[in-house]
Simulated scan of single mutants.
Amino acid sequence: MVTIAGHVYIIPKHIFASVGDPTKYLTDKPVGTGPFTLTRYQADLAVFDKNPNYWQANQVKVNEVRFPEYKDNSTMQLALPKGDIDWAGYFSPTLQQDFVAKDPAHFHLYMDAVNLYSICPNQKDPLVGGQAGLPVRLALSSAIDRNAIAAQATAGLEPPGSMTGLVLPTAKDWLDPQFSGLPMTADVAAAQRYLTDAGFTKGPDGIYQKNGKRLSLTLRSVDTYSDWNAAAKLIADQAKAVGIEIKNVTVGEDNYYTLRTNGKYDYQLMLCGMVGGPTPYYLYNQYLNSAQIGQGKFNFVGWNDSKTDGYLTQYASTTDPTAQKQAIMGIQKVFVQNQPYIPLWTGADYDEYSTKNFTGWPDQNNPYSSGSPNTAPDIEMVILHLQPV
Protein backbone atom coordinates (compact mmCIF):
# COMPACT_ATOMS: atom_id res chain seq x y z
CA MET A 1 0.00 0.00 0.00
CA VAL A 2 2.84 2.40 0.81
CA THR A 3 4.41 1.74 -2.59
CA ILE A 4 1.14 2.45 -4.41
CA ALA A 5 -0.25 5.31 -2.31
CA GLY A 6 3.16 6.94 -1.96
CA HIS A 7 3.34 7.50 -5.71
CA VAL A 8 -0.22 8.76 -6.20
CA TYR A 9 -0.17 12.54 -5.88
CA ILE A 10 -3.31 14.42 -4.86
CA ILE A 11 -3.66 17.86 -6.44
CA PRO A 12 -6.34 20.54 -5.94
CA LYS A 13 -8.88 20.61 -8.76
CA HIS A 14 -9.66 24.32 -8.37
CA ILE A 15 -6.06 25.12 -9.34
CA PHE A 16 -5.12 22.42 -11.82
CA ALA A 17 -8.39 22.06 -13.75
CA SER A 18 -7.59 25.08 -15.90
CA VAL A 19 -3.80 24.83 -16.36
CA GLY A 20 -3.78 22.42 -19.29
CA ASP A 21 -0.99 19.84 -19.25
CA PRO A 22 -0.03 19.62 -15.54
CA THR A 23 3.45 18.34 -16.41
CA LYS A 24 4.19 21.68 -18.09
CA TYR A 25 2.60 23.90 -15.46
CA LEU A 26 5.07 26.12 -13.61
CA THR A 27 4.33 28.30 -10.59
CA ASP A 28 6.30 30.18 -7.96
CA LYS A 29 3.61 29.32 -5.40
CA PRO A 30 3.69 25.54 -5.01
CA VAL A 31 0.64 23.93 -3.43
CA GLY A 32 0.81 21.03 -1.00
CA THR A 33 -0.67 19.55 2.15
CA GLY A 34 2.42 17.72 3.38
CA PRO A 35 4.40 18.18 6.60
CA PHE A 36 6.82 20.71 5.08
CA THR A 37 6.63 23.70 2.75
CA LEU A 38 9.36 25.09 0.51
CA THR A 39 10.64 28.36 1.97
CA ARG A 40 13.88 28.91 0.09
CA TYR A 41 15.34 27.63 -3.15
CA GLN A 42 18.65 28.44 -4.78
CA ALA A 43 21.10 26.69 -7.08
CA ASP A 44 22.86 24.76 -4.32
CA LEU A 45 20.27 24.61 -1.53
CA ALA A 46 16.57 23.94 -0.95
CA VAL A 47 15.03 24.64 2.46
CA PHE A 48 11.72 23.25 3.73
CA ASP A 49 10.09 24.43 6.96
CA LYS A 50 7.51 22.66 9.07
CA ASN A 51 3.98 23.22 7.78
CA PRO A 52 1.84 24.54 10.67
CA ASN A 53 -1.31 23.56 8.75
CA TYR A 54 -0.30 19.92 8.36
CA TRP A 55 -3.02 17.66 9.74
CA GLN A 56 -0.62 16.12 12.28
CA ALA A 57 1.68 19.10 12.80
CA ASN A 58 2.07 18.34 16.51
CA GLN A 59 3.68 15.00 15.65
CA VAL A 60 6.33 16.50 13.36
CA LYS A 61 9.44 17.00 15.50
CA VAL A 62 11.79 18.29 12.80
CA ASN A 63 11.39 22.04 12.26
CA GLU A 64 13.49 22.46 9.13
CA VAL A 65 14.90 20.23 6.40
CA ARG A 66 17.81 21.50 4.32
CA PHE A 67 18.85 19.86 1.05
CA PRO A 68 22.30 21.10 -0.02
CA GLU A 69 23.51 20.10 -3.47
CA TYR A 70 26.85 18.36 -3.89
CA LYS A 71 28.45 18.07 -7.29
CA ASP A 72 29.60 14.49 -6.73
CA ASN A 73 29.96 11.72 -4.16
CA SER A 74 33.47 12.76 -3.18
CA THR A 75 32.36 16.14 -1.81
CA MET A 76 29.45 14.50 0.00
CA GLN A 77 31.85 11.99 1.55
CA LEU A 78 33.73 14.88 3.13
CA ALA A 79 30.61 16.69 4.36
CA LEU A 80 28.99 13.73 6.11
CA PRO A 81 31.67 12.85 8.72
CA LYS A 82 32.32 16.58 9.32
CA GLY A 83 28.72 16.97 10.46
CA ASP A 84 27.72 19.33 7.65
CA ILE A 85 24.85 16.96 6.87
CA ASP A 86 23.03 14.31 8.91
CA TRP A 87 21.89 12.00 6.15
CA ALA A 88 23.05 10.78 2.74
CA GLY A 89 22.57 7.93 0.31
CA TYR A 90 25.57 7.15 -1.87
CA PHE A 91 27.84 4.23 -2.69
CA SER A 92 31.52 4.19 -1.90
CA PRO A 93 33.72 1.11 -1.54
CA THR A 94 35.27 2.70 1.55
CA LEU A 95 32.12 3.65 3.49
CA GLN A 96 33.13 1.66 6.55
CA GLN A 97 36.58 3.25 6.80
CA ASP A 98 35.73 6.77 5.68
CA PHE A 99 32.47 7.17 7.57
CA VAL A 100 31.37 4.54 10.10
CA ALA A 101 34.81 3.95 11.63
CA LYS A 102 35.31 7.66 12.37
CA ASP A 103 32.55 7.65 15.01
CA PRO A 104 30.95 4.20 15.39
CA ALA A 105 28.72 5.43 18.22
CA HIS A 106 26.98 7.96 15.98
CA PHE A 107 27.80 7.19 12.34
CA HIS A 108 25.79 4.34 10.87
CA LEU A 109 25.21 2.57 7.58
CA TYR A 110 21.93 0.84 6.78
CA MET A 111 21.35 -0.99 3.52
CA ASP A 112 17.96 -2.46 2.70
CA ALA A 113 18.04 -4.99 -0.15
CA VAL A 114 15.57 -3.68 -2.73
CA ASN A 115 17.10 -4.28 -6.18
CA LEU A 116 18.63 -7.05 -8.23
CA TYR A 117 21.51 -6.42 -10.62
CA SER A 118 21.64 -8.89 -13.48
CA ILE A 119 22.83 -9.76 -16.94
CA CYS A 120 19.89 -9.15 -19.25
CA PRO A 121 19.89 -11.48 -22.27
CA ASN A 122 17.98 -10.31 -25.33
CA GLN A 123 15.34 -13.02 -25.66
CA LYS A 124 15.05 -12.26 -29.38
CA ASP A 125 18.74 -12.95 -29.99
CA PRO A 126 19.29 -16.36 -31.66
CA LEU A 127 22.33 -17.20 -29.54
CA VAL A 128 21.16 -16.26 -26.03
CA GLY A 129 17.39 -15.83 -26.37
CA GLY A 130 14.38 -18.10 -26.16
CA GLN A 131 14.54 -21.88 -26.02
CA ALA A 132 17.41 -21.99 -28.52
CA GLY A 133 19.56 -19.80 -26.28
CA LEU A 134 18.72 -21.65 -23.05
CA PRO A 135 21.94 -23.75 -22.93
CA VAL A 136 24.07 -20.62 -23.32
CA ARG A 137 22.15 -18.75 -20.61
CA LEU A 138 22.44 -21.68 -18.20
CA ALA A 139 26.12 -22.12 -19.02
CA LEU A 140 26.83 -18.44 -18.42
CA SER A 141 24.87 -18.47 -15.18
CA SER A 142 26.84 -21.51 -13.99
CA ALA A 143 30.14 -19.90 -14.99
CA ILE A 144 29.58 -16.93 -12.70
CA ASP A 145 31.04 -16.69 -9.21
CA ARG A 146 28.44 -14.42 -7.65
CA ASN A 147 30.34 -14.11 -4.38
CA ALA A 148 33.38 -12.76 -6.21
CA ILE A 149 31.32 -10.40 -8.37
CA ALA A 150 29.46 -8.94 -5.38
CA ALA A 151 32.76 -8.47 -3.56
CA GLN A 152 34.34 -6.79 -6.59
CA ALA A 153 31.43 -4.57 -7.63
CA THR A 154 30.25 -3.48 -4.17
CA ALA A 155 33.36 -3.96 -2.01
CA GLY A 156 31.46 -6.70 -0.20
CA LEU A 157 28.78 -4.29 1.02
CA GLU A 158 25.97 -6.04 -0.89
CA PRO A 159 25.20 -9.78 -1.06
CA PRO A 160 25.33 -11.98 -4.17
CA GLY A 161 22.14 -12.34 -6.19
CA SER A 162 19.88 -15.38 -6.16
CA MET A 163 19.24 -17.41 -9.32
CA THR A 164 15.54 -17.34 -8.31
CA GLY A 165 15.27 -13.64 -9.14
CA LEU A 166 14.23 -12.93 -5.55
CA VAL A 167 15.68 -9.92 -3.75
CA LEU A 168 17.24 -11.64 -0.76
CA PRO A 169 17.29 -11.51 2.20
CA THR A 170 14.31 -9.13 1.99
CA ALA A 171 12.10 -11.75 0.29
CA LYS A 172 13.37 -14.73 2.30
CA ASP A 173 9.84 -15.66 3.46
CA TRP A 174 8.87 -16.27 -0.18
CA LEU A 175 11.83 -18.49 -1.04
CA ASP A 176 10.99 -22.02 -2.12
CA PRO A 177 12.98 -24.30 0.24
CA GLN A 178 14.25 -26.37 -2.69
CA PHE A 179 16.19 -23.30 -3.87
CA SER A 180 17.67 -22.30 -0.53
CA GLY A 181 21.03 -23.89 -1.34
CA LEU A 182 21.62 -22.66 -4.88
CA PRO A 183 25.35 -22.23 -5.60
CA MET A 184 26.92 -18.78 -5.40
CA THR A 185 30.27 -19.87 -6.82
CA ALA A 186 31.12 -20.99 -10.35
CA ASP A 187 30.41 -24.55 -11.48
CA VAL A 188 32.73 -24.97 -14.46
CA ALA A 189 31.77 -28.60 -15.09
CA ALA A 190 28.05 -27.79 -15.19
CA ALA A 191 28.62 -24.83 -17.51
CA GLN A 192 30.59 -26.92 -19.97
CA ARG A 193 28.07 -29.75 -19.78
CA TYR A 194 25.24 -27.41 -20.84
CA LEU A 195 27.28 -26.42 -23.88
CA THR A 196 28.44 -29.88 -24.95
CA ASP A 197 24.93 -31.29 -24.53
CA ALA A 198 23.74 -28.56 -26.92
CA GLY A 199 26.29 -29.55 -29.56
CA PHE A 200 29.05 -27.05 -28.82
CA THR A 201 32.65 -28.22 -29.08
CA LYS A 202 35.73 -26.49 -27.71
CA GLY A 203 37.88 -24.79 -30.32
CA PRO A 204 41.69 -24.62 -30.42
CA ASP A 205 41.62 -21.24 -28.64
CA GLY A 206 39.63 -22.67 -25.72
CA ILE A 207 36.36 -21.03 -26.79
CA TYR A 208 33.38 -23.23 -27.60
CA GLN A 209 31.99 -23.19 -31.11
CA LYS A 210 29.07 -24.58 -33.07
CA ASN A 211 28.52 -24.78 -36.81
CA GLY A 212 31.82 -23.00 -37.33
CA LYS A 213 30.89 -20.01 -35.14
CA ARG A 214 32.69 -19.18 -31.91
CA LEU A 215 30.61 -18.63 -28.77
CA SER A 216 31.40 -14.93 -28.57
CA LEU A 217 28.98 -12.57 -26.82
CA THR A 218 28.81 -8.79 -26.35
CA LEU A 219 27.96 -7.36 -22.92
CA ARG A 220 26.95 -3.70 -22.68
CA SER A 221 27.38 -1.50 -19.63
CA VAL A 222 27.34 2.23 -18.83
CA ASP A 223 30.67 4.00 -19.17
CA THR A 224 30.36 5.94 -15.88
CA TYR A 225 29.09 3.05 -13.69
CA SER A 226 32.29 1.89 -12.04
CA ASP A 227 30.64 -0.96 -10.10
CA TRP A 228 28.99 -2.34 -13.24
CA ASN A 229 32.21 -2.15 -15.23
CA ALA A 230 34.19 -3.87 -12.50
CA ALA A 231 31.60 -6.65 -12.55
CA ALA A 232 31.66 -6.83 -16.36
CA LYS A 233 35.41 -7.39 -16.40
CA LEU A 234 35.13 -10.18 -13.86
CA ILE A 235 32.22 -11.77 -15.75
CA ALA A 236 34.34 -11.84 -18.91
CA ASP A 237 37.20 -13.53 -17.04
CA GLN A 238 34.89 -16.10 -15.45
CA ALA A 239 33.13 -16.85 -18.75
CA LYS A 240 36.45 -17.34 -20.51
CA ALA A 241 37.41 -19.94 -17.91
CA VAL A 242 34.56 -22.17 -19.12
CA GLY A 243 35.00 -21.42 -22.83
CA ILE A 244 32.70 -18.43 -23.48
CA GLU A 245 34.12 -15.22 -24.91
CA ILE A 246 32.53 -11.99 -23.68
CA LYS A 247 33.42 -8.64 -25.21
CA ASN A 248 32.62 -5.71 -22.93
CA VAL A 249 31.26 -2.55 -24.52
CA THR A 250 30.32 0.64 -22.68
CA VAL A 251 27.89 3.34 -23.79
CA GLY A 252 26.80 6.67 -22.36
CA GLU A 253 24.02 6.65 -19.78
CA ASP A 254 21.47 8.29 -22.09
CA ASN A 255 22.26 5.86 -24.89
CA TYR A 256 22.00 2.94 -22.49
CA TYR A 257 18.49 3.81 -21.33
CA THR A 258 17.40 4.51 -24.89
CA LEU A 259 18.72 1.09 -25.85
CA ARG A 260 16.81 -0.47 -22.98
CA THR A 261 13.45 1.17 -23.60
CA ASN A 262 13.13 1.74 -27.35
CA GLY A 263 11.69 -1.72 -27.97
CA LYS A 264 14.16 -2.50 -30.78
CA TYR A 265 16.20 -5.11 -28.84
CA ASP A 266 19.40 -3.90 -30.46
CA TYR A 267 21.75 -5.67 -28.06
CA GLN A 268 22.80 -9.17 -27.03
CA LEU A 269 23.60 -8.93 -23.31
CA MET A 270 23.52 -5.91 -21.04
CA LEU A 271 23.84 -5.22 -17.35
CA CYS A 272 20.70 -3.89 -15.70
CA GLY A 273 19.14 -3.07 -12.38
CA MET A 274 15.76 -4.58 -11.51
CA VAL A 275 13.70 -2.72 -8.90
CA GLY A 276 11.81 -4.74 -6.31
CA GLY A 277 8.69 -3.98 -4.28
CA PRO A 278 6.75 -5.01 -1.16
CA THR A 279 6.53 -8.62 -2.43
CA PRO A 280 8.39 -10.49 -5.20
CA TYR A 281 5.34 -10.08 -7.43
CA TYR A 282 6.27 -6.48 -8.20
CA LEU A 283 9.69 -7.31 -9.65
CA TYR A 284 8.45 -10.42 -11.45
CA ASN A 285 5.45 -8.63 -12.92
CA GLN A 286 7.46 -5.68 -14.19
CA TYR A 287 10.27 -7.62 -15.80
CA LEU A 288 8.67 -10.95 -16.82
CA ASN A 289 5.06 -10.18 -17.76
CA SER A 290 4.59 -10.45 -21.54
CA ALA A 291 2.20 -7.48 -21.33
CA GLN A 292 5.27 -5.40 -20.40
CA ILE A 293 7.04 -6.08 -23.71
CA GLY A 294 7.44 -3.08 -25.99
CA GLN A 295 8.66 0.46 -26.20
CA GLY A 296 8.84 2.23 -22.86
CA LYS A 297 7.94 -0.89 -20.88
CA PHE A 298 9.90 -2.84 -18.30
CA ASN A 299 10.19 -6.32 -19.85
CA PHE A 300 12.99 -5.02 -22.03
CA VAL A 301 14.50 -8.48 -22.59
CA GLY A 302 11.28 -9.64 -24.26
CA TRP A 303 10.59 -12.65 -22.00
CA ASN A 304 7.34 -14.21 -23.26
CA ASP A 305 6.28 -17.35 -21.41
CA SER A 306 2.75 -18.62 -20.79
CA LYS A 307 3.69 -20.33 -17.52
CA THR A 308 5.13 -17.11 -16.13
CA ASP A 309 2.07 -15.12 -17.18
CA GLY A 310 -0.18 -17.76 -15.63
CA TYR A 311 1.54 -17.54 -12.27
CA LEU A 312 1.41 -13.74 -12.36
CA THR A 313 -2.32 -13.89 -13.06
CA GLN A 314 -2.78 -16.39 -10.23
CA TYR A 315 -1.07 -14.04 -7.78
CA ALA A 316 -2.97 -10.94 -8.90
CA SER A 317 -6.39 -12.61 -8.92
CA THR A 318 -6.41 -13.69 -5.27
CA THR A 319 -5.84 -12.30 -1.80
CA ASP A 320 -5.17 -15.76 -0.37
CA PRO A 321 -1.57 -15.70 0.94
CA THR A 322 -1.11 -19.43 0.32
CA ALA A 323 -2.18 -19.18 -3.32
CA GLN A 324 0.00 -16.11 -3.81
CA LYS A 325 3.01 -17.87 -2.33
CA GLN A 326 2.42 -20.88 -4.60
CA ALA A 327 2.40 -18.53 -7.59
CA ILE A 328 5.67 -16.89 -6.54
CA MET A 329 7.28 -20.29 -6.01
CA GLY A 330 6.11 -21.32 -9.48
CA ILE A 331 7.84 -18.29 -10.99
CA GLN A 332 11.00 -19.09 -9.03
CA LYS A 333 11.10 -22.51 -10.69
CA VAL A 334 10.69 -20.95 -14.13
CA PHE A 335 13.42 -18.44 -13.30
CA VAL A 336 15.93 -21.03 -12.09
CA GLN A 337 15.29 -23.38 -15.00
CA ASN A 338 15.38 -20.69 -17.70
CA GLN A 339 17.41 -17.73 -16.37
CA PRO A 340 15.47 -15.10 -18.34
CA TYR A 341 17.74 -12.71 -16.46
CA ILE A 342 21.03 -13.86 -14.92
CA PRO A 343 21.24 -12.41 -11.38
CA LEU A 344 24.59 -11.11 -10.14
CA TRP A 345 24.21 -9.20 -6.87
CA THR A 346 21.47 -7.79 -4.67
CA GLY A 347 21.33 -4.01 -4.71
CA ALA A 348 20.64 -1.85 -1.70
CA ASP A 349 19.27 1.61 -1.11
CA TYR A 350 22.24 3.20 0.63
CA ASP A 351 21.47 5.05 3.85
CA GLU A 352 24.25 6.78 5.79
CA TYR A 353 23.13 8.71 8.85
CA SER A 354 24.33 10.33 12.07
CA THR A 355 22.56 10.10 15.43
CA LYS A 356 24.33 13.17 16.83
CA ASN A 357 21.37 15.44 16.13
CA PHE A 358 18.44 13.08 15.48
CA THR A 359 17.33 9.58 16.41
CA GLY A 360 14.59 7.40 14.97
CA TRP A 361 16.36 6.29 11.81
CA PRO A 362 15.42 2.91 10.30
CA ASP A 363 17.89 0.13 10.94
CA GLN A 364 18.13 -3.66 11.01
CA ASN A 365 16.07 -3.79 14.22
CA ASN A 366 13.40 -1.39 12.97
CA PRO A 367 13.29 -1.61 9.15
CA TYR A 368 10.20 0.52 8.65
CA SER A 369 11.71 2.09 5.52
CA SER A 370 14.57 1.58 3.08
CA GLY A 371 16.07 4.66 4.72
CA SER A 372 17.43 6.18 1.55
CA PRO A 373 16.99 9.94 1.09
CA ASN A 374 16.89 9.22 -2.65
CA THR A 375 13.63 7.26 -2.50
CA ALA A 376 10.02 8.41 -2.26
CA PRO A 377 7.89 8.06 -0.21
CA ASP A 378 10.58 6.73 2.15
CA ILE A 379 12.21 10.12 2.63
CA GLU A 380 9.06 11.59 4.19
CA MET A 381 8.47 8.48 6.30
CA VAL A 382 11.94 8.73 7.79
CA ILE A 383 11.73 12.45 8.57
CA LEU A 384 8.39 11.95 10.32
CA HIS A 385 10.01 9.32 12.56
CA LEU A 386 12.94 11.52 13.61
CA GLN A 387 13.33 12.97 17.09
CA PRO A 388 15.82 15.77 17.91
CA VAL A 389 18.53 14.83 20.40
Results as ranks from 00 to 15, higher is better:
residue 144 I to R: 09
residue 139 A to N: 13
residue 227 D to E: 15
residue 247 K to Y: 04
residue 204 P to Y: 08
residue 156 G to H: 03
residue 247 K to E: 11
residue 166 L to G: 11
residue 232 A to D: 09
residue 184 M to I: 02
residue 225 Y to C: 03
residue 194 Y to Q: 08
residue 171 A to D: 15
residue 230 A to H: 06
residue 170 T to I: 02
residue 192 Q to W: 04
residue 233 K to I: 06
residue 177 P to Q: 04
residue 202 K to P: 06
residue 162 S to G: 02
residue 238 Q to I: 00
residue 186 A to H: 06
residue 205 D to E: 08
residue 243 G to D: 02
residue 143 A to E: 13
residue 206 G to V: 08
residue 148 A to V: 13
residue 247 K to Q: 14
residue 221 S to T: 15
residue 219 L to P: 04
residue 168 L to Y: 01
residue 140 L to C: 09
residue 169 P to K: 01
residue 139 A to Q: 09
residue 246 I to F: 10
residue 149 I to L: 11
residue 208 Y to A: 05
residue 240 K to T: 03
residue 189 A to F: 03
residue 191 A to I: 01
residue 210 K to L: 03
residue 141 S to F: 09
residue 166 L to A: 13
residue 141 S to K: 14
residue 234 L to C: 05
residue 225 Y to N: 09
residue 147 N to G: 15
residue 202 K to I: 08
residue 242 V to R: 07
residue 210 K to I: 00
residue 220 R to Q: 14
residue 221 S to D: 10
residue 152 Q to T: 15
residue 157 L to C: 03
residue 140 L to P: 08
residue 162 S to T: 00
residue 180 S to K: 06
residue 180 S to W: 01
residue 232 A to E: 06
residue 179 F to P: 09
residue 158 E to C: 07
residue 199 G to D: 05
residue 178 Q to K: 15
residue 166 L to Y: 13
residue 217 L to Y: 08
residue 221 S to K: 06
residue 238 Q to F: 03
residue 145 D to H: 10
residue 224 T to P: 03
residue 184 M to S: 13
residue 215 L to A: 03
residue 147 N to F: 14
residue 247 K to N: 14
residue 189 A to S: 11
residue 153 A to T: 05
residue 151 A to F: 10
residue 143 A to M: 13
residue 173 D to F: 08
residue 178 Q to C: 03
residue 150 A to H: 06
residue 203 G to Q: 12
residue 222 V to R: 07
residue 185 T to E: 14
residue 194 Y to H: 15
residue 178 Q to D: 14
residue 151 A to H: 05
residue 208 Y to E: 07
residue 141 S to V: 10
residue 220 R to F: 15
residue 204 P to S: 15
residue 201 T to P: 07
residue 155 A to Q: 00
residue 236 A to C: 05
residue 204 P to L: 12
residue 231 A to G: 05
residue 213 K to F: 03
residue 164 T to G: 11
residue 139 A to L: 12
residue 246 I to C: 06
residue 230 A to C: 04
residue 152 Q to P: 07
residue 222 V to H: 04
